[in-house]
Design a protein around this nucleic acid. Structure first.
Lengths: 151, 151
DNA sequence: TAAGATGGACAATGTCGTTGTCCATATAGT
DNA sequence: ACTATATGGACAACGACATTGTCCATCTTA
């Protein structure tokens, strides 16, 4: 098929290919409990969404849902919650060493995956592909209220 | 950031941009009840996954889940179930006129969206992008067991 | 200082997936 | 032909995960 149906499907499949490869590798490196969503959440936290309410806003979900996600991540050892001295209502979410490790390894694996693509496609074509996508998508990454969006 | 993190994110965002645009347009054309998943399911049905069990296999979910999805789609008027004369266990899932209409309009909108991208990026760059994605993803479309995969 | 906004937690609910089970019907092996 | 197995569909119980509503403590602002 050379019609418009293929483009979105290929975009989704390409995303899945990368994410699946990432998590296969992460699992082999000691992060087998990490789910696709967790990476995005850890990223969001590392970038400043360090409370349940803030995380909820960033991810586009309710603060209750964000709170539960944080609880899960805490149970897996990726984050801890520490009281905020400046605002005793808040509990600041902090990445543990394990969480930082997961993020660091994710970045490494993504870099490796990108290199693999560059080898297969040619660096120039890949750069062009990325530039095209950049041109057709909103500038701000991380307005990805993925959960539930599909249903 | 010029690191490997951006590529998967842009792929996902590009997918979302297209799907959101599609459903905005579909809603304006009388299909406001249709959710992103429904399009994929209708596609799968039209391509031959015309029973609960077959649909489940195609989508990568249980036959029970597929059955419930069909029920939902039936409630929305997109499909009906007719007994199979050749196999009295089966109930063949058939697209209604309304369902066919949704699919036809989806195809049209996707074509329009692709044309828009071609205008913005240049036809050649878009063809090249699509070809690159084709090269990096499995050949068979529709092994997209999307539901639940992300969690 | 009083009024409103905000952060976090608890509860009830809804949706949607799962597994387990059951039954009717097809299909295959002997 | 007959029996064993596989398959299609439905019902039930359960779990994951989101939602809204409510409540309270605390911060902010008028």
């Amino acid at each position: 098929m050379s019609n418009g149906f293929e483009l979105p499907l290929r975009l989704l499949m390409a995303f899945r290919v990368l994410i699946d490869a990432l998590h296969e590798e992460l699992a082999a490196q000691g992060h087998s409990d990490m789910r696709p969503m967790h990476g995005f959440v850890l990223q969001a936290i590392a970038r400043g969404a360090d409370s349940a309410a803030a995380l909820g806003r960033t991810l586009g979900v309710s603060k209750q849902a964000a709170g539960k996600t944080i609880e899960t991540l805490e149970g897996l050892g990726y984050v801890t919650r520490v009281p905020d001295p400046a605002d005793s209502r808040r509990k600041t979410v902090v990445l543990t060493d394990f969480g930082v490790d997961a993020l660091r390894r994710s970045a490494e694996v993504f870099d490796e995956l990108r290199s693999r693509w560059a080898r297969e496609l040619g660096a120039e074509r890949l750069d062009d592909l990325e530039e095209s996508l950049r041109q057709m998508t909103p500038g701000d990454l991380f307005r990805l209220d993925v959960p539930g969006w599909f249903g």
